[in-house]
Design a protein around this nucleic acid. Sequence first.
RNA 1: GUGGGUGUAGCUCAGCGGUUAGAGCAGUGGACUGUGGAUCCACGGGUCGGGGGUUCAAAUCCCCUCACCCACCCCA
Length: 439
Amino acid sequence: MIERPRGTNDFIPFESILREKIIYTISEYLKVFGYNLIETPIFEKIELFKRSVGESSDIVLKEMYEFKDKKGRDLVLRPELTASVVRAVIQNKLYNNNYLKFYYIGPIFRYERPQLGRYRQATQFGIEYLGNLSFLADFEIIFLTQNLYNYIFNKFNIKNIEFKIHINSIGCNLCRPTYKKKLYEYFINYKNDLCQDCQKRLDINVLRILDCKNLTCKNISINAPKSIDYLCLECKNHFDNLLNLLTMNNIDFILDNYLVRGLDYYNRTVFEVKAILDNNIIDLAGGGRYDYLANFIDSSYNIAGCGFAGGLERLTIFINNYNSNITKLLSPVKILFTIIHNNQNINIFKYLLNIFQNVNNYINNLKERYSFYFSIESSLKSALKKANAMDINYIIFIGDYEIEKNVFQVKDLKNGKQKEFSLDQINLIIKNIEELLNF
RNA sequence: GUGGGUGUAGCUCAGCGGUUAGAGCAGUGGACUGUGGAUCCACGGGUCGGGGGUUCAAAUCCCCUCACCCACCCCA
């Protein structure tokens, strides 16, 4: 047996249906706010991520799927999408537009050890708002992040889910070096107590020590200098204004002084969406501002930007966990059309073909709301058994008895009611499906 | 990449050196030949994740490997 590669998934019905609906829900919501779909390649040149996500980040350091193509080009399966979106904006010369709002959804690849909600091929969705330096853009992104999740959870009938937005500012190129220096000076005193990883981080990226889960490191971090105490005036104003807007709009956020992100392109605002599942904290999404990203990719460009990215698989886990009935809620009305056929009279099949054709003809009235199934059975009993097993809502059937009386039967399997219709009307049953089922 | 746990029927699992590997659920057929879900009876189904080793004898013990789950690391 050839199995699928580690950390990948087959999404078979009905999980695939749920994913489809979630994706639809996301795009439906974001389009109303003026965000439009952007699609970029699944593989990119390796340089794109080395320059943007950062050579010192774990993603670039050890998690990328790298390969050479037949001409020896160094390519990678994309580990995230923000860098690609910014690259696309530059390459397609979109930067002079003042309405640079995009949403994306698609696969990303990271070579990690799989766990629940963490896969080597995962699906990320997110939005990017480019070209706006104002704190209003940060506000819009955070507002949309929170309310997109609210909208999805509401749509899938999920109540009582608690998710929190953690937020911080990590400053800009002016003030961050000072802060990093202060952090370094603080942590160097504890160098021998820090875990091995953090001892390395001391020189590579001090900020990430704040993110360490090691208990000793955590305890040391408690009294570490906070980035917000070292922000320059502009960064401080930006952050204060943002927090004011969020407060005025009753957006529930937690000011997390030690929140940092593993991708190097962020500046000023960073945030994460955290939710609780069985006493575990799971990150649903993360994001922030990345005003230097365009410049990292090509030094002749400066394009401000702000966005967030969320994981589709993690979201799906929550929806399934909080609403186990979800696939039933999403299912269309199922109708089984059956011919009870236990003799040689093949003429009876013409009614079956008739329904096939009419379903096709009226597809616009039926789509999203009805699913049709067809079968030929030797007895009514087996037809009903099959319908029951398939969780069919209505069965329409024609057998010898019906032919003799020139009728067909419609039975509501949920309440057992049954009604007889004249076979002369068979051509109208799909066209008038609503009336037919409403008896 | 590190540490731990688990792989036995379609599903959930029992068996943990000793006949021919089991149960429940699901499936198929019948009792019941035109009105379903119930009940009873019968039946089908397994390279015990894969490979190697130890042994008279391995699902069971050992080694390797693959996959999943959990905690790290990191992140969506």
